[in-house]
């Protein structure tokens, strides 16, 4: 059975709940310390947290760790690579996804529930959602303000919206370009998102809208 690696850097803190969410979605998964190897894995999740205490720029130090070279090899092989929150920051810093995550427009840590519109279902992470579906998940970040010079080579997977799916300035929590909450590469096998699907993967947590992200990748690696 295909197996996922949830990579743990010093300062990562969402690894256990991410592992739980993948298990709940029916996947096989292990926590992997960043100094280990990724051989024998068929997918990677870079979870949330504060790796290296956000020194320099959030995700900047982890993005230069040796294990990221292995992540790049898996990415080129078409394996699914998911970055959540700090993991998204690692993906942009490593060049696996274009753009950068800048400090929030109002410069403080934001921790709240938001609505998201699923804007592209043609990715390994969103295939179980309906196009235009509105879902609810928490965000928890200080640097989530997505910026890019050029969006030609990305798919916009998730956008901050209101509960009816309207994408307006009023519901943009951090100043992100086009209300972007999550993007994927053109091929659809690398996705970064600031909201935490693992924190919305059980109704006891207040929502299980995030579970489909994990169900999607678990299904994807079976192919």
């Amino acid at each position: 059975m295909p197996k996922f690696a949830v990579i743990v850097f010093p300062g990562t803190n969402c690894d256990f709940e991410t592992v739980e969410a993948i298990r709940k979605a029916g996947g096989k998964v292990e926590r992997v310390w960043y100094k280990s190897s990724l051989k024998d894995f068929d997918g990677v999740v870079l979870p949330g947290g504060f790796s290296y205490a956000d020194y320099l720029r959030a995700g900047a130090i982890s993005a230069r760790a040796e294990i990221m070279e292995e992540v790049k090899v898996l990415a080129n092989d078409g394996k699914p690579i998911l970055g959540i929150c700090n993991g998204f920051q690692v993906l942009t810093e490593s060049g696996l996804l274009p753009g950068a995550l800048r400090p929030n427009k109002v410069p403080r840590f934001l921790c709240k529930w938001v609505y998201l519109k699923v804007s592209d279902t043609q990715t390994a992470f969103t295939q179980f959602y309906e196009e235009g579906e509105v879902i609810r998940m928490p965000i928890a970040h200080a640097e989530g303000n997505y910026y890019a010079n050029d969006l030609n080579k990305v798919k916009i997977a998730f956008q901050y919206s209101d509960e009816n799916g309207n994408i307006t300035n009023d519901v943009n929590p951090n100043g992100s370009l086009l209300n972007i909450a999550g993007i994927s590469n053109e091929k659809g096998n690398i996705l970064g998102m600031m909201p935490h699907p693992e924190r919305a993967s059980d109704r006891w947590l207040g929502s299980e809208d995030g579970l489909k992200v994990f169900k999607s990748i678990v299904e994807y690696v079976k192919r």
Partner: peptide, 9 residues
């Protein structure tokens, strides 16, 4: 180029 600055921003 490789670390201290992020050329995007």
């Amino acid at each position: 180029r490789r670390l201290l600055a992020n050329p995007v921003i």
